[in-house]
Structure formats: C-alpha cells, structure tokens
Amino acid sequence: MANLIPVAKTVGSNRMVPTISIPYPLGDPSTSKEEQWKLRYHRVGVALEALATEIQDQTVFKTKI
C-alpha cells in the first residue's frame, strides 16, 4: 500500500495499492466512521488480493473507492 505510486515504482515495489493521503493512508477524518470503515475494508481487501495474485511485472492494483 502506497501513497506515492511513482516513488513506489522507482524503488522497485512489485505490487502497489494506492492509499488515500499521506497523513491518513487508510481513512479520511472528514467523513463518518462508517465511511472510513468502508474505505479501510475495501483497501485492505484489495491489498490481500494483490498478495494472492501472481504477477510478472510491477503492478498497480485499482481501487473502486
């Protein structure tokens, strides 16, 4: 999981899941707790799928939320 995908690519990360922001990578304090939970649940789910996916090259996994 990375805030700065270009930096993650440069340092050689092979699986990248975009996060929301630098100070709050898995949440947005301006939203409700329910909305934050949905964001976190989704991003962690994408990250787990990324770990279970066989890849050949650097891959950025898309997020819907």
Rank of each mutant, 00 (worst) to 15 (best):
H42K: 03
T63Y: 05
G12S: 01
L51H: 00
G45D: 12
V17H: 08
E35N: 12
M16C: 14
P6A: 08
I55A: 11
I55M: 08
K9T: 11
R40M: 06
A52P: 03
A8W: 09
S13V: 14
L4M: 05
K62L: 08
E34S: 11
R15A: 09
A2Y: 09
I55Q: 14
N14I: 13
E54D: 14
A8P: 10
N3G: 06
L51Q: 01
R43F: 09
A50D: 11
E49M: 12
K38Y: 02
I22Q: 09
Q36P: 04
Q36S: 12
V44G: 08
K33S: 12
G27C: 14
T19V: 15
E49K: 08
D57W: 08
Q56H: 04
P6L: 13
L26E: 00
Y24A: 07
T59C: 06
L48I: 07
G27H: 08
R15Y: 03
R40A: 03
P6G: 14
I5Q: 04
E49V: 05
Q36Y: 02
P18S: 13
P25S: 05
I20F: 07
S21W: 10
V44S: 10
I55K: 07
E54L: 04
V60S: 02
L4V: 07
G45Y: 04
L4N: 14
I65D: 02
V46N: 01
P18D: 10
P25D: 14
D57G: 09
N3M: 06
V60E: 03
P23A: 14
A52M: 02
H42Q: 07
L4R: 05
V46A: 09
L26Q: 00
A50V: 05
M16Y: 08
A50N: 11
R40I: 08
A2W: 14
P6F: 12
V60P: 07
Y41G: 00
A8D: 13
P6V: 15
L39P: 00
P6W: 11
V44D: 00
I55N: 15
K62I: 08
N14C: 07
H42R: 10
H42V: 00
S32D: 11
K64F: 03
I22T: 07
Y24V: 07
K64W: 06
S30V: 01
P29L: 10
A2R: 00
